[in-house]
Amino acid sequence: MAKSSNDLFSTLRTYISKVTEGEKSPAEVAAALNGWARESADALKSKIHEEVEASVAKMGFVKRDEFDRLAAQVAAMKSEASTKKASAKKTAPKKPVAKKSAAKKSAPKKKAVKK
């Protein structure tokens, strides 16, 4: 941080000397400083984003959009599986029904006639 503050003060001194020497107008200096501030803010945001991404990845978390994409894939797979299961039930060959064996009836025995 000390280096960037030194850079800032150095830049400000340069701009102030250019304004006092009449090389630049105060509006030009203000526009230049505004541009520099925007660039610095963008660089800082980018660095913070990178650090947060790295920390989150180390902790094992996933981004919300990654989670939503995976959840959608799982839902699609479940839907596909249930569709396949339903169509398999409709087209499944019928199991042959086991025929019950007819019990053999023995012919009624004739009674012996006594003579």
Score class of each variant (00 low, 15 high):
Met1Leu: 08
Ser4Leu: 04
Ser5His: 01
Asn6Phe: 13
Asn6Leu: 14
Ser10Arg: 03
Ser10Tyr: 11
Leu12Ser: 12
Thr14Met: 13
Thr14Trp: 13
Ile16Thr: 11
Ser17Pro: 15
Thr20Val: 05
Thr20Asn: 13
Gly22Val: 01
Gly22Cys: 06
Glu23Lys: 01
Glu23Trp: 02
Lys24Asp: 15
Ser25Gly: 03
Pro26Ala: 00
Ala27Glu: 08
Ala27Asn: 08
Ala30Glu: 03
Ala30Leu: 14
Asn34Asp: 12
Trp36His: 14
Ala37Trp: 00
Arg38Asn: 06
Glu39Ala: 01
Ser40Phe: 07
Ser40Glu: 05
Ala41Phe: 01
Asp42Val: 00
Ala43Ile: 00
Lys45Thr: 09
Lys45Ile: 05
Lys45Phe: 08
Ser46Thr: 11
Glu51Val: 09
Glu51Pro: 05
Val52Arg: 04
Val52Ala: 04
Val52Glu: 11
Glu53Pro: 02
Ser55Val: 08
Ser55Cys: 12
Val56Tyr: 08
Val56Trp: 05
Lys58Asn: 09
Lys58Cys: 07
Met59Pro: 05
Val62Gly: 09
Val62Gln: 14
Lys63Gln: 10
Asp65Met: 10
Glu66Leu: 08
Glu66Arg: 00
Arg69Trp: 05
Leu70Gly: 09
Ala72Gly: 04
Ala72Ser: 14
Gln73Cys: 13
Val74Ser: 11
Val74His: 02
Ala75Ile: 05
Ala75Pro: 07
Ala75Met: 01
Ala76His: 07
Ser79Glu: 11
Ala81Glu: 10
Ser82Pro: 05
Thr83His: 09
Lys84Ala: 14
Ala86Tyr: 12
Ala88Phe: 09
Lys90Gln: 06
Ala92Val: 06
Pro93Gly: 00
Pro93Val: 05
Lys95Leu: 15
Pro96Arg: 00
Ala98Asp: 09
Lys99Pro: 14
Lys99Thr: 04
Lys100Trp: 02
Lys100Phe: 12
Lys100Asn: 10
Lys100Ile: 10
Ser101Ala: 08
Ala102Glu: 13
Ala103Glu: 07
Lys104Gly: 09
Lys104Asn: 11
Lys104Asp: 11
Ala107Arg: 06
Pro108Trp: 02
Lys110Asn: 06
Lys110His: 09
Lys111Ala: 15
Lys111Tyr: 14
Ala112Lys: 03
Val113Ile: 14
Val113Asp: 10
Lys114Tyr: 07
